[in-house]
């Protein structure tokens, strides 16, 4: 029970350090000092304390959507088994619900963006929806491969399905890492630091949000990064390392650590890579598709 609670709390808290690590790593590579540890937290709190300005074009839906967005992601929190054991909601097919919760978050984001009638937000929304069309089958393909290898369709079995098979694990990690970048709206898919609306995806869609709504969206984006990268880390760390009664706790801690490493990776990547040209992003997403496909085919051949 405590394990579950701590798991939830950890997932809820992790977005702040993750954001901080990314900023710090980027600052390090740029030879700057970077913000203090609590800066991301302060940012969110600051937004929560503010009032809000709404566009005259928008209606009730615009005000609802950020809350729905965050609610979907918070629900996903109880599905991701960071400790490698069952979570609050672990059942056959939970990965489907996870994917659909991410989709729900996406829907609310897009719907909110289109509410404003802004061409930039329409542009971002359009890209977000289109990339998902390729990313989602890729995720399911990977999931299919894991189910095929593990024999069961819940996250707990799936994440350890590739244990001991380095090639498969690498493929899965590669595919999931692209998913992290895509879902978290990170370089090379999207540039959170850009100031040019025409090149934005996620940032374009939140242009007109303010106050607590913006806070929810910002926090949600970070949470999404944490959720997907937790899965990534769970796939990397083999189950055999964490036996015994302290195993789950150990695994929980190491997953959290792993998520921080992923964050550092993201920061490094962002420092050394430019955002892809918008026309090349679909190809990048298709890379995830092909990696998953290779994983699936190898599983089909192996098992």
């Amino acid at each position: 029970m405590e394990l579950l609670l701590i798991q939830v709390v950890l997932l809820l808290v992790l977005p702040f350090p993750v954001l901080w690590i990314i900023l710090r790593v980027k600052a390090f590579w740029a030879a700057r000092r970077g913000p203090c540890f609590f800066q991301p937290f302060h940012d969110i709190v600051r937004l929560c304390k503010k009032g809000a300005v709404f566009s005259k074009t928008t209606s009730l839906a615009f005000r609802l959507m950020p809350s729905v967005h965050l609610a979907a992601l918070l629900t996903a929190v109880i599905l991701v088994p960071m400790s490698g054991r069952g979570h609050i909601a672990s059942f056959e097919g939970d990965f489907v619900l996870f994917a659909y919760l991410l989709a729900a978050a996406r829907f609310s984001m897009i719907a909110g963006a289109l509410e404003t009638g802004s061409p930039f937000e329409g542009m971002g929304a359009s890209r977000e929806a289109a990339f998902a069309v390729f990313a989602e089958p890729a995720f399911f393909m990977l999931a299919g491969a894991m189910v095929l290898a593990g024999g069961k369709a819940d996250f707990v079995t799936m994440v350890s399905a590739f244990d001991g098979r380095a090639v498969l694990t690498t493929l899965a990690v590669l595919s999931l890492f692209i998913m992290v970048l895509l879902e978290g709206a990170r370089i090379p898919v999207d540039d959170p630091a850009t100031h040019l609306e025409l090149t934005m995806i996620h940032e374009a869609m939140i242009l007109d949000h303010s106050g607590p709504d913006l806070a929810m969206l910002q926090y949600g984006a970070a949470l999404k990064t944490v959720l997907v990268s937790s899965l990534l880390v769970l796939v990397v760390l083999p189950e055999q390392l964490f036996t015994g009664s302290a195993g789950p706790w150990l695994r929980l801690a190491s997953t959290a650590g792993g998520v921080c490493i992923v964050a550092a990776l993201i920061g490094t990547l962002e420092s050394f890579m430019a955002r892809l040209r918008m026309t090349h992003v679909p190809q990048f997403v298709l890379l995830m598709f092909s990696v998953s496909l290779v994983a699936l085919v190898s599983v089909l051949l192996l098992f």
Partner: peptide
């Protein structure tokens, strides 16, 4: 809470 035009 204010109202404004959409950022464009």
């Amino acid at each position: 809470q204010g109202e404004a035009t959409t950022w464009s």
